[in-house]
Amino acid sequence: MSRSPDGVIVAGCDIGALTTKAVIMKDGALLGAEILNSRARGAESARRAMEGLLGRLGLQWDSISYCVGTGYGRNVVPFAQANVSEISCHGRGAHWLVPSVRTVIDGGGQDCKALLVDENGMLVDFRMNFKCAAGTGAALEVAAESLGIDVSELGPLSLQAAEPALLRKPCCILTQIEIRHHLFEGRNRADIAAGINEITALQILPLVRELDVEKDIAFTGGMAKNVGLLKCLERELGTEMVRFPEDPQLVGAIGAALFAADRARTRS
């Protein structure tokens, strides 16, 4: 159902709070993807991400017959014909990659969402946190900074922990102080990294538990790259989550491209 008309090329562009993701699809298959840091310059990074991707694939701007924008900056994707909320896109993308998915936890740069999809990948219900940075990618970034490591190292490092350091503060800014105290007391960095993942999982889970969670469960967004956090969530949920054949950070953009394929089909 997600195929665009034969030979037609569609695109999805997800401008998140921290990164911009662009994907291009053709005949129901992913041709390529690009991830850039966006921060404040959403429109500009969207253009750069898509331009880079087109160049790598040997395509032109006019090769794209339809593009859907999504994410925090979905309204400013300069080359998109339409935009769809990232909640719908994450559900759609996750379900397309692994059709058994019914529950999606999306850990983004500045928000966290839990959502349910039906057997067609369409949104049924969702919960969202956007008031507090705890339990979002931004929280992992500041925590990693306090630990003196890159956010990408948090997952692998945490797997070497003997016992997670106990972090109690619900606020990720105050957690920074707790992290410094643990470092001061000579606590092993791996233990602290594990502690960061533990508290982050505990901050995400209440959102998930508000929904009637159905298996399979998927974890998407940049936070899903953190294998330690993924394992914490799996332990708390008492089940394994699906593993994606693609980078989980691309799921929203893939969902957007699938919506673009729908539009291209309706139009032709």
Binding site: A17, R39, A40, K131, C132, A133, A138, A139, C172, I173
Partner: peptide, 17 residues
């Protein structure tokens, strides 16, 4: 709109831009 310092920071960046 935001009260969390981390979100204030990004909101201010967007508004400046």
């Amino acid at each position: 709109n935001n009260q969390c310092p981390i979100f204030v920071e990004s909101e201010v960046i967007s508004l400046t831009n």
